[in-house]
Design a binder for these strands. Structure first.
Lengths: 354, 354
DNA sequence: TTGTAGGCGTTATCAT
DNA sequence: ATGATAACGCCTACAA
């Protein structure tokens, strides 16, 4: 195991000083063409490879690495983000360091620590917890932080999100336009920002359409497809309808009001969509119910599922872009990027109510 | 933008030498308890964070980073790999640096270079090209390389693959057991190792079952769902059958033989599966055709698709494990890990031929 | 255009 | 148990 040649060796072989060799290999100006040649030849013949570790240390401050802390890399949404981030970073000569928090705030903060030890120039985060005290200190100390997907409460940092409200409203209006009034909303955990945005706007849109008691059909807890499936099965069961569900906040039956099953479902995330489809397949009274899902997914096309789609790769790219911009100019105003969504009609959302 | 406190500062505040502070923070033995306390206090109060860049440089040789060069991070298979890799690396205090080659050999080699500059301790690669001359030199120089998914031709390195032949044979036998004899094989690009393994074994299994002319139903080029769809539509069109397809190597019609459409399709990768399903939905004569897909996917369950499944996250984990093991002992024998596959019956593969 | 000196923040060696 | 001192490989001044 021979040691790699260093810049000093290259310089010696080329018969120049270390600094001159450095200049050549960094494409700095003010080097005679002949000298450049000699250095390049020497480097090539030695198989020289600059040591980015040493370079970063010498330069001081941050390394040319950017950290990405995600909920779970195996999740297609996060990996799409990672893909967009990596692509953009490369344009700027930066490398991506990824770490999965498993949506665990504690793990998130320990990962943050590890990445900071690596002196990442920026941290791109899909915040798991609500407490970002650790990060706040770092930001004050000059760390660039960009959050994606959900804003970080109480932290004034660059943020990239999608237009959750716009997408939700478009979905609701799409269903309303096809004649639906009894529309159910099946969402993830209520504490998630995206849940709140989407459910709030769902209710607002319904209210604007003259449906004032849409709360009856709002359900949360669809963190997995299985949970979503159960929620929808229950919704479809007209005999119990809304009253049975555990979440008193939303599910209250109004006295004397006939429980009616929804004719359409707005599934507020991709797992909810899958669960909803399972429920519609399995439960009596499931067919004919319209579905619009938030988040596009690969087979939505084949399945004919109407969705609210957006570009996750672009989201990642924009986040990386913000990270780079802020690193270059720490004083620039904080930016909030809101990416558009669009309804992609594929059949499931265009069924008329029976 | 204040500079971070260094170990020297911590030592000074604690009233000890730099080396002692270092010992404490690295949990080295031979430090008096009282001294340890003082150093820990100083570090905490200063908000000290070790600089991994400097540490790696001082230690010399490799950094505590591992590189992963993948075809496309946005692809769910690769991101599953990345997830498994990252999880395993973390156990060993290593961090993951990811880079996407877009399956472009040229890009793969430039990424390799960038990662090597970062002095990664190991490189985990899903090899895109056939030429790995650059890597070979590095391996000779002591770099740990592990390849995943496909072996690297002409390089004797640790490898993790799935049992492509076993999975293929199981799928074929599954279909044979349900009465199919006219089974089509729809695969990716012929130059891919996985294609070769799967198509070879397909033919062997068919031959073993007494079907000697299964080549008639072998198709390649299903790199995208759309391409796969076209291939299957053509296969189903009994009037032209196999003769029409451009790939003379496989598709030759035998003179005087009646063209018969297949009663079952073995889709050799997940995109091929999607395309096949689209074709069966759209083309006349498509329904009733049995399908088994290689690679499991999220909605296979909902769609009732029988697949050859395996654990991609585990694949990544094993690769990382090998990388760690070899870094620790460069002289250990090269290992080839073959992960098992299993047929998951969900309906589409159990249809009897009409 | 080229070179010299000093330092980046650790870890390793070898004393004490 | 502790500490001085020299690497590690490069870059940034600042000369020449």
């Amino acid at each position: 195991m021979i040691r790699r040649p260093t810049l000093a060796v290259v310089a010696e072989v080329a018969g120049v000083s270390l600094k001159t060799a450095s200049r050549v290999l960094n494409r700095e100006p003010n080097v005679a063409a002949a000298t450049r040649e000699r250095v390049l030849d020497a480097a090539a013949s030695l198989g020289f490879r600059r040591n980015a570790v040493a370079a970063d240390l010498a330069r001081g401050g941050f390394s040319r690495l950017v950290g990405f802390i995600t909920g779970d890399l195996a999740n297609e949404f996060y990996s799409a983000l990672a893909s967009g981030i990596e692509r953009e970073l490369r344009e700027h000569g930066l490398q991506l360091l990824t770490a999965s928090s498993d949506e665990d705030p504690e793990r998130e903060s320990s990962l943050t620590g590890e990445l900071l030890e690596r002196r990442v120039g920026a941290l791109i985060v899909t915040p798991a917890g609500a407490d970002h005290s650790a990060l706040r200190g770092e930001i004050a100390a000059g760390l660039t932080v960009v959050v994606v997907d959900r804003p970080a409460a109480g932290m004034d940092v660059d943020t990239v999100v999608i237009d959750n409200r716009g997408g939700t409203r478009a979905a609701v209006e799409h269903l309303l336009a096809h004649g639906h009034r009894r529309i159910a909303f099946v969402g993830d955990e209520p504490h998630l920002w995206t849940y709140q945005e989407r459910s709030d706007e769902f209710l607002a849109a319904m209210r604007d359409a003259g449906v004032s008691d849409a709360e009856r059909w709002v359900r949360s807890g669809a963190h997995s497809a299985a949970a979503a499936r159960d929620l929808v099965v229950e919704l479809l069961d007209a005999r119990h309808g809304q009253a049975r569900h555990g979440q008193a906040r939303h599910g209250q039956a109004r006295d004397g009001q006939a429980p009616e099953p929804p004719t359409a479902v707005l599934a507020a995330n991709n797992r909810a969509t899958v669960g909803t489809l399972q429920a519609l397949r399995d439960a009596p009274g499931g067919d004919g119910v319209a579905v619009v899902g938030f988040d596009d997914f690969e087979l939505a096309d084949l399945l004919g599922i109407t969705v609210v789609a957006y570009d996750a790769v672009e989201m990642g790219r924009r986040a990386a872009e913000l990270a780079v911009a802020r690193s270059a100019d720490p004083d620039r105003p904080v930016e909030l990027v809101v990416l558009p969504t669009r309804v992609v009609a594929r059949g499931s959302g265009e069924r008329e109510p029976r």
